[in-house]
């Protein structure tokens, strides 16, 4: 039993990390008031670019950075559409998903299913061979993800820039009057979300699967959209949510392997069911906010009267 638990805890980070990274990205974007439904597409370009970079003979870390760059580039398109041209955010997000999936299908088609040497686990590196299994089985991206978690929290809640970002998400008009550059802040937040989603995508291909195939994000981007609501737009909540959602998936598969009769379809439903529960509780508790930024999805135009 303890063997089973240890094995589960060992793989838990690899299930949770992509959700955590993309979730942090969404917190950035949505705290600034930009509803971002595009993680599935931004993760897709990150996964493909990361894989193709490594397949092209580069170091896995270069691949990870390329994935980050690709996610950022796609989010620039989304950011320009919603922040500069004020496109409707839901539609622009969905269009970005379609664009990301389409681009990866076209560019990556010649590189499907080609295994490559991805990011090494710590135990596979020269200096990490003696680490205990729980740590040795992780890649260096796991501590990087934790550092990013703290960094996002710190920027949002401990810096003036973060205060302005949250102010824009709560009341762009007031933030504008107070001197915040609403468009610049929102665009920066969207680019940050693209970078983190690109990293999450690169994690899937370069750190986890070591192969690229079309559509390999496989719905994780949509789980992240729900996860951020579940987390009530808090970085720590994203961590717990990622551990819970990722942990459930890992547990479901492992319970199957030992033959425990577990309702797997209920397990697959869990992220969405819990998100509904959180939303319902938030709306039942009168006065208590769901944590949703007040101006989420709102298109701010300076000349509009309120």
């Amino acid at each position: 039993m303890s063997e089973f638990l240890l094995a589960w805890l060992t793989v838990l980070p690899s299930y949770a990390a992509p959700l955590l990274l993309a979730g942090l990205g969404l917190v950035l974007s949505e705290r600034a008031g930009v509803l971002n439904l595009a993680p599935e597409g931004m993760m897709a370009v990150g996964a493909m670019t990361g894989a193709l970079t490594v397949l092209g003979g580069h170091d896995p870390w270069t691949g990870v950075l390329a994935g980050v760059a690709a996610g950022t580039a796609l989010s620039l398109g989304f950011g320009l559409a919603v922040v500069v041209f004020r496109a409707e955010q839901t539609l622009a997000g969905l269009a970005t998903v379609a664009l990301g999936l389409g681009i990866t299908g076209v560019i990556g088609r010649a590189h499907v299913q080609k295994p490559f040497e991805g990011l090494a686990r710590l135990s596979e590196t020269g200096w990490g061979a003696d680490l205990p299994r729980l740590i040795g089985q992780q890649t260096l991206l796991i501590p990087v993800a934790l550092v990013l978690l703290v960094a996002v929290w710190w920027v949002l809640f401990r810096t003036a820039a973060g205060l302005r970002l949250r102010a824009v998400g709560e009341d762009p008009a007031a933030a504008d009057v107070a001197g915040a550059n609403v468009q610049a802040i929102q665009l920066a937040a969207v680019l940050g979300s693209g970078a983190l989603c690109g990293l999450a995508g690169a994690y899937l291909s370069v750190a986890s699967a070591h192969v690229w195939v079309e559509g390999m994000v496989a719905g994780r981007g949509w789980v992240v959209v729900a996860l951020v609501i579940f987390a009530r737009w808090r970085p720590a909540g994203v961590l717990w949510g990622a551990l819970l959602f990722g942990g459930t998936e890992a547990l479901t598969l492992r319970l199957q392997a030992v033959g425990v009769d577990f309702p797997v379809y209920l397990g697959a439903m869990l992220p969405y069911a819990l998100t509904l529960v959180v939303l319902t509780i938030a709306s039942l508790r009168r006065g208590a906010s769901s944590g949703e930024p007040s101006a989420l999805g709102f298109i701010y135009l300076r000349q509009d009267k309120h």
Binding site: A209, V211, V213, M216, L253
Partner: peptide
């Protein structure tokens, strides 16, 4: 079609 999960499941089977 989920190569990430397929790799993870393969490991789960090996862990057994």
């Amino acid at each position: 079609w989920d190569p990430v999960k397929e790799g993870q499941v393969s490991e789960a089977i090996l862990d057994q």
